[in-house]
Simulated scan of single mutants.
Amino acid sequence: MTEHDYTTFTISDFLEDPDFLRYVKYQFPEDRLFWENWQAAQPENMAAFSAAELQLQLLLSTKPFKTSPGLEANLLATIHQSIAKGNKKLKVSRQKYFWAGGIAASLFVALFISWFFNSTVSIHTAFGERKKIALPDGSEVILNANSTLSYPRAYAWKEKRAVKLDGEAYFKVKHLNQDADQVKPGELFRAQTSTIEVQVLGTTFNIRERRGMAHVALVEGSVQVKSVKSGQHYQMKPGNVVQVNSRNGLLTVEKQGSLQQSAWKDGRLIVNQTTVNEILRNFEDVYGYQVILDDPALGQKKIDGSISIKSEEGLLFTLSQILNVNIQKQGKVIYLKNR
């Protein structure tokens, strides 16, 4: 159970919390015990909890549907016609309010269900920020800086598990079925960017798409990568790195390097004959600066080893020592000048 201060949650907060969703949908004993104890403390926002629980129960018992723009007008017209047939004014008045109230409540439920099933949750990280995200199915995502992860608000009730990524993220997907020969559509997990689509049952992998190139690095398990533009696909093995060009959709495979690709989540940058220009581009993507070298030839210098990227100051200091340069900041521009 993720630790949250549920006493401050609104209805929307409860509806987006994976632990609350699991409790309402599955009623696992440990979840029931937690929420029963929480309610016993009589928090001030019990009304928000009860409203969110009721709305989810309605969702679980009702198939999603969309309301047409003229539905409310037609329903009200029908009400008025039936009211006109009444004989007693008091009875007519009571019927009017009763049916109007019922229709209004039905419309509210219909609109809420339509909104819930057709809206998305988007999580964004600023420059220099990382977030750990728990998806409703128990999968985990570490979202790198300057990135956005989106998924349906009704993720737990969709026929397939699917997310969209802009930037970089490390995925640890939960297996819902260990038998690869008997796979149902809802048991597959799909992660998509503008360039690639990754399909898995449950595994650990890293996706990065920046500057016109997409990379998928498989740490464990099995992943199928497909180029959206060219249709090329490849079944990856642990350690593989697949690169796809966003412009032409060309897919290429490197047999090793997945740990190097995903080291950022541990605050490290592992470089192997990596040019300074590549390192600086990574720095710009993560921290939002423009870096200018006083001597452009330094950009072609190749570096091996492990560099800490837990802070922009630490990375810049390391580079200043390796390249023998001074650092000068002017707003969002950093100059590396020869000593």
Rank of each mutant, 00 (worst) to 15 (best):
V253C: 13
P43T: 03
F98P: 10
P152D: 06
I270Y: 02
A40M: 05
R94I: 11
K172A: 13
F49C: 06
K131V: 04
K226S: 11
R268A: 05
Q182V: 06
S311W: 01
V24W: 08
T67K: 04
H124V: 15
M213V: 13
S106K: 03
D266S: 00
V286M: 10
R22I: 02
V271G: 09
R130M: 10
D304S: 15
N87H: 09
N206E: 09
M213G: 00
L60W: 10
R210S: 07
Q328D: 11
T203A: 08
G138M: 15
S306I: 14
A110W: 06
Y6M: 04
I270C: 10
V121E: 02
F116M: 00
L107M: 15
L143A: 00
V183E: 11
V286T: 12
L58F: 05
T62W: 07
S230A: 05
F127N: 05
S320H: 07
L56C: 01
L111E: 15
L58P: 05
N87Y: 03
K91F: 11
V225G: 07
I196E: 08
K85W: 09
V173D: 05
R211D: 09
S230T: 06
V141C: 04
F49Q: 01
S246D: 12
L251P: 08
E278R: 04
V228F: 02
A77W: 00
E209A: 13
V109M: 11
L143S: 10
G267V: 05
K91I: 15
I279Q: 08
A104S: 12
F108N: 07
L111Q: 15
V286E: 13
V286W: 08
Q321I: 12
T274A: 14
S82F: 09
K226G: 11
I270T: 15
S308C: 03
D285I: 03
V141Y: 11
P296Y: 09
L316R: 09
W264I: 02
A51W: 06
Y170T: 06
T252I: 07
A41P: 01
G257H: 11
Y335K: 10
I103M: 14
L176N: 07
L54S: 04
K164A: 14
Y287V: 01
V291A: 04
R32T: 13
S222N: 00
H175I: 03
S308Q: 07
I79M: 05
T10S: 15
Q321H: 03
G202Q: 00
L280M: 02
S230R: 02
Y97A: 04
N74P: 06
G305V: 00
P152R: 00
K332E: 05
I142N: 07
E187R: 02
S122F: 00
R32W: 00
T195E: 06
I11D: 04
S82D: 14
T67L: 10
S61K: 14
N272F: 12
N37L: 01
V223Y: 03
A145H: 03
R211E: 09
Q192I: 13
A51Y: 11
G239T: 04
K96W: 14
K329A: 14
G186M: 05
A263Y: 12
